[in-house]
Design a protein around this nucleic acid. Structure first.
Lengths: 177, 177
DNA sequence: GTTGACACGTGAAGC
DNA sequence: TGCTTCACGTGTCAA
């Protein structure tokens, strides 16, 4: 049934360690590439050569896909399992989390922009201070309400922005009143 | 060689359309599940049942992986090709782009925080205004230097933050001087 | 007609 | 133990 017995049979491991093996010393692709292994075992060289070509192409495709998956795992934090499907799932969750944080920041900016700050800068600054203070408090509440797993880098960045704005507001209060 | 002749042989299409077919009307997994198709064709039922179990499990694994890949493609904008490897590659590029934007914002916040704003808020605010103005100008230069392909949503968000800070600085100048 | 991408079944290995 | 995940070769289809 299988004309190739034990090509790549010595790895015997799970997918990550297998990738490490393939990366350095598991260079048997070249062996399959130039050796006429299948042609010597079969009488017709043309069809077998085409079949071996297909085998090599499929191997390269699989290897490329594994490399991509490995690279995806590298750029995504909080990888729960080494599973192939879990890696993609964690990547999806991470991207969605980034999108959510981004839309939250954008909503906050929109809320800040809906003040009278847009036209006539320098005027009616006293009625914008409550807006800044309100956004500051709701922002902190939102951050502290989002569970204990607030370890995302963009979340601590958001916290820093809130902290900076808070200090600016305090400075404005001390200066203006 | 193959004891299953044409299970899933009528789709005959590429991977996305195949997913659409599988999603709605291509529910032949259940048919394989309960029908004793393999047991009737082979004399020993135990080994064949184990083999069919393996076949069904493998099918479910492949289906789950394809669903994950489809969901990944849904959350990533700018999908160049429908290829499996290209989808993962675009996701990697997108995550790296988000990380780059995020680190740029974080560097900006760090630059803003290195002023004397941290201790004694409300004091020495006159010597912080040049810092704010400098950061504003360099930020605009950075944004306009990053090529014409500045269409990322987090980039326009960054532009909005810069704009808002600029107006606050102008308001402060008009108020304090 | 060749190439690239895919789903499939199958045996092996790890929990 | 059985269940899950994996790589592999093979056939098939479309560009």
């Amino acid at each position: 049934m299988e004309n190739i017995e034990n090509i790549g049979d010595e790895y015997k491991n799970y997918w990550e360690t297998k990738y490490f093996l393939e990366n350095e010393e598991y260079s048997s692709w070249a062996i399959d590439e130039f050796s006429g292994y299948y042609d010597s075992s079969s009488p017709d060289g043309a069809a077998s050569s085409a079949a071996s070509k297909n085998i090599v192409s499929e191997r390269n495709r699989r290897k490329k896909l594994n490399e991509r998956l490995f690279a995806l795992r590298a750029v995504v934090p909080n990888i729960s399992k080494m599973d192939k499907a879990s890696i993609i799932k964690d990547a999806i969750d991470y991207i969605q989390e980034l999108h959510e944080q981004e839309s939250r920041i954008q909503a906050e900016i929109m809320e800040l922009e809906t003040g009278k700050l847009k036209k006539n800068p320098g005027f009616e600054y006293e009625q914008e201070l409550p807006v800044l203070l309100k956004s500051k408090k709701s922002k902190l509440d939102n951050i502290f309400d989002s569970g204990g797993s607030a370890t995302s880098p963009i979340e601590v960045l958001e916290l820093k922005v809130t902290h900076m704005r808070e200090k600016i507001v305090v400075a404005l209060e001390n200066r203006l009143y």
